[in-house]
C-alpha cells in the first residue's frame, strides 16, 4: 500500500511537470530544457526555508514556487530579449550552472544531498492524505494550463507562435507574454518540487540533471504537444515504464543510463514516426467553450 501511494505521488508530480512544460514548450513555443531545475529550486527553496528557518511547510512550499517564478523571469528576460534561440542555450547553462552551485556549497548539503527535510504533516497523519493532495494539485494544474491555453491568453499565445511581428504590430507585448507563460510553467514546476521535498525529505542534485529534462520532454512529445491530455498520458505511461525496469533489479549504474536511453530513444522514434504524439493536437486554436473536443480528433 505504501508503495502504491509513493507511485501515485510520483505520477501526480510528473503530471504537474509535464503539463507545465507543455505550457512552456508547446503553447508558448519556448524551448528550454531547464524545467527540472525549477523543480529543484522549488524543492530546495521550500526545504531550506522549512528546515533552517522554521517556516511552516505550506508557506515554505508557496515561497519555493515563487522562488522558481523569480528565477525563471531572471533567466527568460535577458535571453528572450534577443531571440527565442538563446533561451535554450541559456537554459542549458542555467541548469548545469545551478546544479554546479548546489553541489559546491555547503548549505544545500552539497553533492551528498539535503537531508532531514521536515515532513509536511505530523507522522500520525495517514499516508493517503498526501497522495490525495498531490492528485488534487495535479488535476488543478492540468485544468489551469488548459484554461490558460484555451482562454484569451491562449489565443494570444497561438497568434504569437504564428507570427511574432504581426502580433506585436497589433499592440501585443510579445516579450511580456513569453516571460509570463514561462514564469507560470516554471512556477508550477517549483510547486511540484516543494511537494516532492516534504514528502521524500531528501534531495540530491543528480535528481535534477539532464536525465530529468529528457524524461519530461519525452512525456510531452510522446503524449502530444499542445494538448490537455497528452502530457498526462505521457507522464503516467513513462512513470510506469521505468518502474517496470526498476523491478528488474539492475544495479543503479545501469538503471540511470537505461532509463535515459529509453527516454531519448522514444523522443527520436516519435519525432520521426509520429511527430504529433499519441494524442494529436488540433490544427486550429479553439476557445474554452469548444475546448472539450480538442485533442480527441
Amino acid at each position: 500500500m505504501e508503495y502504491l501511494y509513493t507511485i501515485i505521488i510520483l505520477v501526480g508530480l510528473y503530471v504537474v511537470l509535464a503539463s507545465s512544460f507543455n505550457l512552456v514548450i508547446g503553447y508558448a513555443g519556448l524551448i528550454s530544457i531547464a524545467h527540472p531545475v525549477f523543480y529543484a529550486i522549488g524543492a530546495y527553496g521550500s526545504a531550506l526555508l522549512a528546515r533552517d528557518f522554521g517556516w511552516p511547510a505550506p508557506l515554505a512550499m508557496l515561497a519555493g514556487a515563487l522562488l522558481a517564478v523569480a528565477a525563471s523571469i531572471l533567466l527568460a528576460l535577458p535571453s528572450l530579449r534577443v531571440s527565442g534561440d538563446y533561451l535554450l542555450i541559456a537554459s542549458i547553462g542555467f541548469q548545469l550552472g545551478l546544479l554546479e552551485i548546489i553541489k559546491n556549497v555547503s548549505w544545500t548539503g552539497g553533492a551528498g544531498g539535503l537531508t532531514n527535510i521536515p515532513a509536511a504533516f505530523a507522522p500520525s497523519t495517514p499516508h493517503w492524505v498526501y497522495a490525495v493532495i498531490v492528485v488534487v494539485v495535479a488535476a488543478l494544474s492540468v485544468l489551469a494550463v488548459r484554461a490558460v491555453a484555451h482562454g484569451a491568453y491562449g489565443r494570444a499565445m497561438s497568434a504569437l507562435r504564428d507570427d511574432e511581428l504581426a502580433f506585436s504590430m497589433l499592440g501585443r507585448n510579445a516579450v511580456a507574454m513569453k516571460v509570463g507563460s514561462f514564469a507560470l510553467g516554471c512556477g508550477l514546476a517549483g510547486f511540484a518540487g516543494a511537494l516532492y521535498a516534504h514528502q521524500f525529505r531528501y534531495l540530491a542534485p543528480d535528481q535534477f540533471e539532464i536525465l530529468q529534462s529528457s524524461a519530461i520532454l519525452t512525456m510531452v512529445v510522446v503524449g502530444g504537444l499542445r494538448t490537455t491530455w497528452g502530457p498526462v498520458v505521457g507522464a503516467v505511461m513513462l512513470q510506469a515504464l521505468p518502474q517496470a525496469i526498476t523491478f528488474m533489479n539492475l544495479p543503479p549504474s545501469l538503471l540511470g543510463p537505461l532509463q535515459g536511453l529509453l527516454f531519448t530513444g522514444l523522443v527520436l522514434v516519435f519525432m520521426f514516426i509520429r511527430p504529433q504524439g499519441l494524442i494529436p493536437a488540433a490544427d486550429v486554436w479553439t476557445g474554452a467553450k469548444e475546448a472539450h473536443d480538442v485533442g480527441r480528433r
Binding site: 482562454g151 484569451a152 491568453y153 489565443r155 494570444a156 497561438s158 497568434a159 507562435r161 504564428d162 507570427d163 511581428l165 504581426a166 502580433f167 497589433l170 499592440g171 501585443r172 507585448n173 511580456a176 507574454m177 490544427d283 486550429v284 486554436w285 476557445g287
Partner: peptide
Amino acid sequence: RLFPSLSVLDNLMVAPRRYAGE
C-alpha cells in the same frame, strides 16, 4: 501575415488596442 492557426474571428479578436486577457 495573418495567424493561420486562428479562425478569422480569432484573428480579429487578438487585435483590439487593449487586450484584457494579455
